[in-house]
Design a protein around this nucleic acid. Structure first.
Length: 422
RNA sequence: CGGGGUGUUGUGUAAUGGUAGCGCGCUUGGUUUGGGACCAAGUAGUCAGAGUUCGAGUCUCUGCACCCCGACCA
């Protein structure tokens, strides 16, 4: 992608109505644009990051047997009356009028659709277990949207729903999902700061687990067990005196962002819809479900909160919009030709490159490269050619080095995009 | 939803009740080219509505939006 052709531009100043680091940087760098409180457009750069995150999650969900679907956001009142949530969640949902007396809801979650859906296709114990998931926008009538991408009214979420005949099967699937979640957070670069956290659950499951990423930008408070690293959400800390996993009593308090939440909903939603299958004896058996949520837009904001400095963002390679930011300095034909050659070569090799071919000053290009935060910066200039080729610098390291032009591609240790590191 | 604050061009800001000005961006021309360069000429704005006033960006009222603190957050 040539930067002169990119849809967006960078801005020197952050909009005055954005306070959070993630929103300021994402807007300044042209990754996102705010339409209204808690509602953002994802621009080409931001969408590329989102798709990287999405693909990592997709791979991990597929690895635990998830099958991707896409459910509607616009949903009928009737389904929500069946679970009682038309009134129970009244204040949290955007309700929409249809024709005459039709009422709809812009879905804040998708149990009311996925359970009746499963009823059509899961009829026998032989059909189990099954799991479906989607990437879909969720709508929540937040009384106060804030903190940029961290708490939106419309946001992108991955939600997976699993169906089981026995509690043992649900339990073992739940543990598999925990591993998948760990893989996801490791791969996007926040594994070390993300804690599985004991939290309050629904009506039937007394507890659930959240995945909380430690950062000062967090709105939640968690207590991390110093012995086994399980965390406990402040919400339930008063009920839980010792670590439920290791009985440890020594905790460290941290602020954190809830990036995921997983539940054993068991019969909570299958019961109202009477989602049953025949077991081996021909008896009707109520299914048990697990629900596994992960907020993509929130995850993206969280990554920015963790990986940035005073100059801009510093994307982990696995989620960066491009691998290389190629910068050409000066207007001499020889320099421009060499830069074009490198650009074409990288394109041919399917290495994602943003080519800054703008006719602006060096300082502006460097400042923008730092702001945009692409992992590798390659400069082609009269100076670099005299020194022997191209200058390479990593965003997270001040050192630069010169490599020969025909060694540019090889001199960087690339991980192909969208695949696992390990 | 309670309390507080703020709405001026795409963006950041200035303007005793009296000509809406500046930086960035953008357009045109020229000089520049390794850390947000320079010159010149342009471009575009008072959240909406009502009121007070000879005159409103400025005062009053209503509405809307946005931000902050709190409450809320299956």
């Amino acid at each position: 992608m040539k930067q002169t052709e990119l849809f967006t531009k960078t801005q020197k100043n952050a909009p005055k109505d954005e306070v959070s680091v993630n929103a300021q940087l994402l807007i300044r760098a042209g990754y996102a644009d705010k339409l209204m409180a808690g509602v953002y457009t994802f621009l080409p750069l931001g969408l590329r990051v989102m798709k990287k995150i999405e693909n990592i999650i997709r791979e991990e969900m597929n690895a635990i047997g998830g099958q991707e679907i896409l459910m509607p956001t616009l949903q009928p009142k009737e389904n929500w009356e069946i679970t009682g949530r038309w009134t129970a969640l009244d204040e949290d949902m955007f309700k929409v009028d249809g024709h005459e007396n039709q009422k709809f809801v812009l879905a804040p979650t998708h149990e009311e659709v996925v359970i009746p859906l499963a009823k059509k296709f899961i009829n026998s114990y032989k059909d189990l277990p099954k799991a479906v998931y989607q990437f879909q926008n969720k709508f929540r009538k937040e009384k106060r949207a804030k903190s940029g991408l961290l708490r939106g009214r419309e946001f992108l979420m991955k939600d997976l729903y699993s169906f089981h005949l026995s509690e043992a099967d649900l339990d073992s699937y739940y543990e598999k999902a925990v591993v998948a979640y760990r893989n996801i957070f490791d791969r996007v670069g926040i594994g070390e700061k993300t804690y599985k956290t004991f939290a309050s659950g629904g009506t039937f499951a007394k507890y659930s687990h959240e995945f909380q990423t430690v950062t000062p930008a967090g709105e939640d408070i968690i207590y991390i067990c110093q012995k086994c690293n399980l965390a406990i959400n402040k919400e339930i800390k008063s009920e839980v005196e010792v670590c439920p996993d290791c009985q440890g009593k020594d905790f460290r308090e941290e602020k954190a962002i809830e990036v995921g939440n997983i539940f054993k909903n068991k019969e909570k939603y299958t019961k109202p819809f009477n989602l049953t299958v025949k077991d081996e004896a021909g008896e009707d058996k109520l299914l048990l479900t697990g629900c596994f949520g992960l907020g993509l837009s929130r995850l993206m904001g969280t990554i920015v909160e963790i990986y940035h400095d005073e100059k801009g963002m510093i994307w982990p390679e696995a989620v960066a919009p491009f691998k290389i930011h190629l910068i050409v300095l000066g207007s001499q034909p020889i320099v421009i030709n060499k830069a074009e050659e490198i650009y074409n070569d990288l394109q041919k090799k399917n290495i994602e490159v943003l080519y800054d071919d703008r006719e602006v000053s060096a300082g502006e290009k460097f400042a923008d490269a730092d702001l945009i935060g692409i992992p590798y910066r390659i400069v082609i200039s009269e100076k670099s050619l005299k020194a022997g080729g191209a200058e390479i610098k990593k965003r997270n390291n001040p050192e630069t080095k010169i490599v020969k032009l025909d060694e540019v591609t090889n001199s960087i240790n690339f991980t192909p995009s969208n695949t696992a590191k390990r």
